[in-house]
Simulated assay, not measured.
Amino acid sequence: MAPLLLLAGAVAVLSGSMVALQARANGRLAEQVGAFPAAGFSFFSGLAALSLLLVSGRFRARLARVPAAVRSGGLRWFHVLGGVAGGLLVSTQTYAVPMVGVAAFLVAVVGGQVVSSLVVDRQGWGPAPAQALSRARVLAAGIAVVGVALTATAGEAAGGTAPGAGLEGAVLPVAVAFTVGLLASLQFAFNGRVTRAAGVPTVTALINFAVGGATVALIGSVLAATGWLARPSGLDVPWWAWAGGLCGVVFITGAAWAVQHTGVLVFGLLAVTSQVGVGAALDLTNPAMSDRVDTQLVAGMALAVSGSALAGLAAARSARRRSVSRAAAG
């Protein structure tokens, strides 16, 4: 059991790293082709990879369970739309990362997730029962928000060299990332319901990539029709800039396997820590972002991870109390 647990922990770290690598790859690609073309490529390349699973009759049977669950009322129609939040998240990657860096983007998203999880869990929108608000979880959300605020202005005093540096150039992208992070918890909740209906997380991943890709294509079409879509400036990008979609596939499949062996709490802590850590390392190797990795940004990262850890511990305590109550009632 111990070797399997260590392997699952390593996969959790790898999965979190994939989120940071995806953000860096998509951001680099966006610098050349524009935000929405880069987001679209990321989604549709991941969708193409996941579509290979359709050759399996067992996978197709699992996929058929989802529309059947919608027809029977086991799922609501909007539960399959979790990929909309994913589409917005990847689109925000391609917009925000070139301006503020990977680390600040990820801290903002994590902060939004911690805050929105209060509402999602309180309303019981996911597969788990509704959870009452606790002081610990509210405190965790507050800590995460402070971390986001610190990262939004990191590097300003040092004269950060990020494109568009300044109040609008730093705060606005972080605010957008935080807002999209608010939707991420809703996506996780809906995905949990779809996975429960399908029986395997790869079905949920395929549906997410399809819906997210459609979302990106719709927004991109509107921007193109109104003249707001930037034209590509070229395709002179390194090979790894095309790998954002595959990074997303690795994250989803790795997370689906690892969480079964580590539990949600341990997986979340390892993944979030590796996300922001790898994000900071990537920024340090990027000359346009290295000035932003200062003491203030590191403090913001630490607060975001602390808020996530406190929220996870509070959720674990709540789950133990519910388990004890059910055992006593039985």
Rank of each mutant, 00 (worst) to 15 (best):
A2F: 11
G9D: 13
S17Q: 05
G27W: 02
R28K: 12
L29R: 00
G34V: 10
F36V: 13
F41R: 07
F43C: 08
A48F: 10
L50Y: 03
L52P: 05
L53S: 09
V55I: 11
V55P: 02
R62V: 00
L63A: 13
A68R: 15
V70E: 04
R71V: 12
L75N: 10
V80Y: 00
G86C: 08
A96C: 03
P98I: 10
A103N: 04
L106C: 00
V107S: 00
G112R: 07
S117I: 04
S117Y: 05
A132P: 12
R135L: 14
V138N: 02
G142N: 04
A152V: 08
G155A: 05
G160C: 14
P163Q: 10
E168S: 14
V171S: 00
V174E: 07
L182A: 08
S185A: 13
Q187M: 09
F190L: 15
R193Q: 05
V194M: 09
G199R: 01
T202G: 01
T202E: 15
T202H: 09
T204P: 00
I207F: 01
G212S: 08
G212I: 09
T215W: 04
I219A: 06
L223P: 00
A224Y: 09
G227F: 14
R231N: 09
L235K: 02
L235Q: 08
V237P: 05
P238F: 06
W239T: 15
A243F: 14
G244L: 00
G244M: 01
V249I: 13
V250G: 02
I252Y: 12
T253Y: 10
W257R: 11
V264E: 03
Q275Y: 11
V276K: 04
G277K: 06
G277V: 10
A281R: 11
N286S: 14
A288S: 12
S290N: 11
V293M: 02
D294H: 01
T295A: 15
V298Y: 05
A299I: 10
G300H: 11
M301Y: 03
A302D: 07
A309H: 08
A311E: 11
G312P: 06
L313F: 14
S318H: 14
A319D: 12
V324M: 12
S325W: 14
A327K: 13
